[in-house]
């Protein structure tokens, strides 16, 4: 089974029914899989903070949301994570491509990669890092933990996890 299919199976098994995305090359497969599932309303957003607003509304409307985005979007969404998702105490699984790690071909990506974990730690966001393919086995537990704790939770997925570029 493909890794993207496994991930989206876990989404569906955890009743995630509203997913917003901003593409990253590494996330192409998983976004395609989200789009293909009838259980999920896929709503592409133009910016990740907008996407988090959509997710907040969906959550209050009774649907479990998730966002799929690149780690550079942490820089875009800090205010929203703090003053909306955390302040109103809402759950939000964030499946994040961790660009700028080993095997990265684009130098600019290394810049935000350096800041990604420190920013998440500073924000008090529980963070999991998928490096080996097997790490995906923890996703189900991470999703359950996210909705149990009503917090935004980051799942960083690096190039090694996705099998290179």
């Amino acid at each position: 089974m493909s890794i993207s299919k496994q991930i989206v199976d876990d989404f569906v098994a955890n009743d995630i029914a509203f997913v917003t995305t901003v593409p990253c090359k590494q996330l192409g497969g998983v976004i395609e899989e989200v789009e293909a599932r009838p259980e999920i309303y896929h709503i592409p957003s133009n910016k990740e903070d907008e996407g988090m607003g959509l997710c907040a509304g969906a959550y209050m409307g009774g649907k479990r949301p998730a966002i799929i985005m690149q780690n550079t979007a942490i820089g875009v969404t800090i205010n929203t994570l703090v003053t909306l998702t955390q302040f109103y105490r809402m759950p939000l699984p964030m499946l994040i491509s961790f660009r700028g790690e080993l095997m990265e071909p684009v130098a600019c990506q290394a810049e935000m990669a350096i800041h990604t974990k420190p920013l998440l730690q500073q924000l008090g966001i529980p963070t999991y890092h998928f490096h080996k393919q097997d790490d995906v086995r923890e996703l189900d537990a991470i999703l359950k933990y996210t909705f149990m704790s009503s917090k935004p939770v980051a799942i960083l997925t690096d190039a090694t996890f996705w099998g290179g570029y």
Partner: peptide, 22 residues
């Protein structure tokens, strides 16, 4: 009424997510 206390700009997005979900 859902009052936004911060996060300028996202009222329309929150409302859309809500409308699409119920």
């Amino acid at each position: 009424n859902f009052y936004m206390l911060g996060t300028m700009g996202l009222a329309s997005s929150i409302g859309l997510g809500l409308a699409l979900s119920q």
